[in-house]
Simulated scan of single mutants.
Amino acid sequence: MHALIVVAHPDPGSLSHSVAAHVAQGVTLSGPDHSVDIADLMAEGFDPRFTAADLAVHRREAPPPADVAAEQARIDRADALVLVFPVYWWSMPALLKGWIDRVFANGWAFDFNLDQPLEKKLGRLRVHLIGVGGADTGTYGRHGYADAMATQIDHGIFDYCGARVVTSELLLDSETSDPLAHLNVARAIGRTLFDLPEHSTARAA
Protein backbone atom coordinates (compact mmCIF):
# COMPACT_ATOMS: atom_id res chain seq x y z
CA MET A 1 0.00 0.00 0.00
CA HIS A 2 1.12 3.54 -0.70
CA ALA A 3 1.06 6.68 1.45
CA LEU A 4 1.36 10.29 0.32
CA ILE A 5 2.69 12.58 3.05
CA VAL A 6 2.18 16.29 2.41
CA VAL A 7 4.19 18.74 4.51
CA ALA A 8 3.89 22.53 4.44
CA HIS A 9 6.68 24.37 6.29
CA PRO A 10 9.29 26.81 4.94
CA ASP A 11 12.14 25.39 7.06
CA PRO A 12 13.39 21.93 6.01
CA GLY A 13 14.96 21.58 9.47
CA SER A 14 11.66 22.17 11.27
CA LEU A 15 9.88 19.78 13.59
CA SER A 16 7.11 19.48 10.99
CA HIS A 17 9.59 18.11 8.45
CA SER A 18 11.08 15.77 11.05
CA VAL A 19 7.60 14.51 11.91
CA ALA A 20 6.88 13.85 8.23
CA ALA A 21 10.17 11.97 7.87
CA HIS A 22 9.42 9.82 10.92
CA VAL A 23 5.95 8.98 9.63
CA ALA A 24 7.59 7.90 6.37
CA GLN A 25 10.11 5.82 8.29
CA GLY A 26 7.29 4.11 10.15
CA VAL A 27 5.49 3.31 6.89
CA THR A 28 8.59 1.69 5.36
CA LEU A 29 9.17 -0.33 8.53
CA SER A 30 5.59 -1.57 8.60
CA GLY A 31 5.89 -3.94 5.67
CA PRO A 32 7.90 -4.70 2.52
CA ASP A 33 4.92 -3.91 0.30
CA HIS A 34 4.37 -0.45 1.77
CA SER A 35 5.73 2.64 0.03
CA VAL A 36 5.68 6.35 0.71
CA ASP A 37 6.04 9.65 -1.16
CA ILE A 38 6.70 12.97 0.61
CA ALA A 39 5.32 16.09 -1.07
CA ASP A 40 7.20 19.12 0.27
CA LEU A 41 4.95 21.89 -1.00
CA MET A 42 7.38 24.68 -0.24
CA ALA A 43 10.42 23.02 -1.82
CA GLU A 44 8.39 21.97 -4.85
CA GLY A 45 7.12 25.52 -5.36
CA PHE A 46 3.42 24.69 -5.42
CA ASP A 47 1.36 27.82 -6.16
CA PRO A 48 -1.51 27.98 -3.63
CA ARG A 49 -3.29 30.93 -5.23
CA PHE A 50 -6.85 30.18 -6.36
CA THR A 51 -7.10 32.06 -9.63
CA ALA A 52 -9.60 32.51 -12.46
CA ALA A 53 -8.30 29.27 -13.97
CA ASP A 54 -9.27 27.40 -10.79
CA LEU A 55 -12.66 29.09 -10.74
CA ALA A 56 -13.22 27.84 -14.29
CA VAL A 57 -12.46 24.30 -13.06
CA HIS A 58 -14.99 24.71 -10.25
CA ARG A 59 -17.61 25.87 -12.75
CA ARG A 60 -16.78 22.87 -14.98
CA GLU A 61 -15.74 25.20 -17.78
CA ALA A 62 -12.13 23.99 -18.09
CA PRO A 63 -9.93 21.04 -17.13
CA PRO A 64 -7.57 21.38 -14.14
CA PRO A 65 -4.25 23.15 -14.74
CA ALA A 66 -1.25 20.84 -15.12
CA ASP A 67 0.04 21.37 -11.58
CA VAL A 68 -3.35 20.54 -10.08
CA ALA A 69 -3.79 17.47 -12.28
CA ALA A 70 -0.36 16.25 -11.16
CA GLU A 71 -1.31 16.55 -7.48
CA GLN A 72 -4.63 14.79 -8.07
CA ALA A 73 -2.75 11.94 -9.75
CA ARG A 74 -0.45 11.73 -6.72
CA ILE A 75 -3.45 11.31 -4.45
CA ASP A 76 -5.07 8.82 -6.83
CA ARG A 77 -1.97 6.62 -6.44
CA ALA A 78 -2.18 6.74 -2.65
CA ASP A 79 -4.15 4.56 -0.26
CA ALA A 80 -3.55 7.01 2.59
CA LEU A 81 -3.02 10.77 2.67
CA VAL A 82 -1.08 12.24 5.59
CA LEU A 83 -1.02 16.01 6.14
CA VAL A 84 1.73 17.33 8.45
CA PHE A 85 1.57 21.03 9.24
CA PRO A 86 2.33 23.66 11.89
CA VAL A 87 -0.80 25.12 13.44
CA TYR A 88 -1.09 28.75 12.33
CA TRP A 89 -3.91 30.74 13.93
CA TRP A 90 -5.70 27.52 14.93
CA SER A 91 -5.67 26.18 11.40
CA MET A 92 -3.26 25.07 8.67
CA PRO A 93 -0.80 27.33 6.81
CA ALA A 94 -2.04 29.19 3.75
CA LEU A 95 0.21 27.05 1.54
CA LEU A 96 -1.52 23.83 2.59
CA LYS A 97 -4.98 25.40 2.56
CA GLY A 98 -4.32 26.68 -0.96
CA TRP A 99 -3.20 23.20 -2.02
CA ILE A 100 -6.54 21.87 -0.79
CA ASP A 101 -8.47 24.76 -2.37
CA ARG A 102 -6.99 24.04 -5.79
CA VAL A 103 -6.48 20.26 -5.75
CA PHE A 104 -9.74 19.12 -4.12
CA ALA A 105 -11.70 20.49 -7.03
CA ASN A 106 -15.24 20.07 -8.27
CA GLY A 107 -15.36 17.13 -10.66
CA TRP A 108 -12.52 15.27 -8.95
CA ALA A 109 -13.01 15.41 -5.17
CA PHE A 110 -16.77 15.89 -5.43
CA ASP A 111 -19.45 16.59 -8.01
CA PHE A 112 -21.60 19.60 -7.37
CA ASN A 113 -24.18 21.26 -9.54
CA LEU A 114 -27.63 22.66 -8.93
CA ASP A 115 -29.43 19.89 -10.80
CA GLN A 116 -28.50 16.91 -8.61
CA PRO A 117 -27.42 16.01 -5.07
CA LEU A 118 -23.79 16.38 -4.06
CA GLU A 119 -21.66 13.36 -4.96
CA LYS A 120 -18.69 12.67 -2.67
CA LYS A 121 -15.96 11.09 -4.78
CA LEU A 122 -13.11 10.33 -2.34
CA GLY A 123 -14.72 7.61 -0.26
CA ARG A 124 -11.77 5.27 -0.78
CA LEU A 125 -9.24 7.73 0.69
CA ARG A 126 -7.98 7.40 4.29
CA VAL A 127 -6.70 10.66 5.76
CA HIS A 128 -4.36 11.22 8.71
CA LEU A 129 -3.87 14.74 10.10
CA ILE A 130 -0.88 15.75 12.21
CA GLY A 131 -0.81 19.32 13.46
CA VAL A 132 2.25 20.68 15.30
CA GLY A 133 1.27 23.36 17.81
CA GLY A 134 3.15 25.54 20.25
CA ALA A 135 0.43 25.82 22.91
CA ASP A 136 -0.38 23.18 25.51
CA THR A 137 -3.30 20.77 25.77
CA GLY A 138 -5.05 22.89 28.38
CA THR A 139 -5.09 25.93 26.10
CA TYR A 140 -6.59 23.96 23.23
CA GLY A 141 -9.20 22.40 25.48
CA ARG A 142 -10.07 25.55 27.40
CA HIS A 143 -10.76 27.60 24.29
CA GLY A 144 -12.26 24.85 22.16
CA TYR A 145 -9.58 25.10 19.50
CA ALA A 146 -9.29 21.34 18.96
CA ASP A 147 -13.03 21.02 18.37
CA ALA A 148 -12.97 24.04 16.07
CA MET A 149 -10.19 22.49 13.99
CA ALA A 150 -12.08 19.20 13.79
CA THR A 151 -15.18 20.98 12.51
CA GLN A 152 -13.26 23.09 10.03
CA ILE A 153 -10.84 20.47 8.68
CA ASP A 154 -12.11 16.94 9.40
CA HIS A 155 -15.75 17.69 8.65
CA GLY A 156 -15.68 20.85 6.56
CA ILE A 157 -13.06 19.62 4.08
CA PHE A 158 -12.69 15.86 4.06
CA ASP A 159 -16.17 14.70 4.98
CA TYR A 160 -17.52 16.96 2.23
CA CYS A 161 -15.48 14.89 -0.24
CA GLY A 162 -16.27 11.56 1.42
CA ALA A 163 -12.68 10.97 2.58
CA ARG A 164 -12.30 9.21 5.93
CA VAL A 165 -10.25 10.96 8.62
CA VAL A 166 -8.77 8.00 10.47
CA THR A 167 -6.44 9.83 12.85
CA SER A 168 -6.21 13.49 13.80
CA GLU A 169 -3.28 14.23 16.10
CA LEU A 170 -2.14 17.48 17.67
CA LEU A 171 1.51 17.36 18.76
CA LEU A 172 1.54 20.20 21.29
CA ASP A 173 4.10 22.10 23.39
CA SER A 174 6.28 21.87 20.30
CA GLU A 175 8.50 24.81 21.26
CA THR A 176 9.21 23.73 24.83
CA SER A 177 8.96 19.94 25.06
CA ASP A 178 11.43 17.25 24.02
CA PRO A 179 10.81 16.67 20.30
CA LEU A 180 11.71 12.99 20.66
CA ALA A 181 8.29 12.20 22.12
CA HIS A 182 6.57 13.74 19.08
CA LEU A 183 8.87 11.92 16.68
CA ASN A 184 8.10 8.62 18.40
CA VAL A 185 4.37 9.30 17.97
CA ALA A 186 4.97 10.12 14.30
CA ARG A 187 6.85 6.89 13.71
CA ALA A 188 4.12 4.91 15.46
CA ILE A 189 1.48 6.53 13.25
CA GLY A 190 3.48 5.50 10.20
CA ARG A 191 3.88 1.91 11.39
CA THR A 192 0.13 1.49 11.89
CA LEU A 193 -1.03 3.71 9.03
CA PHE A 194 -2.73 0.91 7.12
CA ASP A 195 -3.89 -1.04 10.18
CA LEU A 196 -5.91 1.51 12.12
CA PRO A 197 -9.70 1.11 12.12
CA GLU A 198 -11.81 3.93 10.79
CA HIS A 199 -12.69 6.77 13.12
CA SER A 200 -9.87 6.05 15.59
CA THR A 201 -9.44 9.80 15.82
CA ALA A 202 -7.36 11.34 18.58
CA ARG A 203 -7.00 15.06 19.13
CA ALA A 204 -3.92 15.64 21.25
CA ALA A 205 -0.61 13.94 21.89
Rank of each mutant, 00 (worst) to 15 (best):
H2G: 04
H2A: 12
A3E: 01
L4F: 08
A8C: 12
A8G: 06
H9E: 10
P10D: 10
P12Q: 06
P12F: 07
G13D: 12
G13M: 05
S14M: 09
S16Y: 03
S18L: 12
A20Q: 02
A20T: 05
A20I: 04
A21G: 13
A21L: 04
G26A: 03
V27Q: 01
T28H: 06
T28G: 06
L29V: 01
S30L: 03
D37R: 14
D37G: 10
A39Y: 01
A39I: 05
D40Q: 05
L41S: 08
A43F: 04
D47C: 13
R49F: 08
A52C: 08
D54S: 05
V57G: 00
R60M: 15
E61A: 15
A62K: 13
P63A: 15
P64R: 02
A66T: 14
A66E: 13
D67M: 11
D67V: 11
A70Q: 14
A70K: 13
A70D: 15
Q72K: 14
I75Y: 09
R77M: 08
D79S: 13
L81D: 04
V82M: 10
V84Q: 07
F85M: 11
S91T: 13
L95I: 14
L96K: 00
L96N: 00
K97M: 11
K97R: 15
G98E: 06
D101E: 15
R102N: 01
V103S: 04
A105E: 04
N106M: 10
G107M: 04
F110R: 15
D111F: 02
F112I: 12
N113C: 14
N113R: 12
L114N: 10
L118G: 11
L122A: 00
R124S: 11
R124L: 04
L129S: 03
I130P: 00
V132M: 03
G133W: 00
G133M: 01
D136T: 08
D136Q: 02
Y140W: 11
Y140Q: 02
Y140C: 00
R142T: 13
H143N: 14
H143L: 14
Y145E: 12
Y145Q: 12
A146N: 12
D147F: 05
D147K: 10
M149I: 09
A150C: 05
T151Q: 15
T151M: 14
Q152L: 13
H155N: 11
H155M: 12
I157D: 00
C161I: 15
R164K: 14
V166H: 02
V166F: 07
T167I: 02
S168R: 11
L170M: 15
L171N: 02
L172W: 09
D173H: 07
D173C: 11
S174K: 03
T176W: 03
S177P: 03
S177W: 05
D178V: 05
D178K: 08
D178P: 02
L180D: 15
N184L: 14
V185H: 13
A188T: 12
A188P: 01
R191Y: 07
T192P: 03
L193R: 01
E198S: 10
H199I: 05
H199Y: 08
S200E: 15
T201G: 13
A202R: 14
A202E: 10
A202W: 06
R203Q: 09
A204G: 02
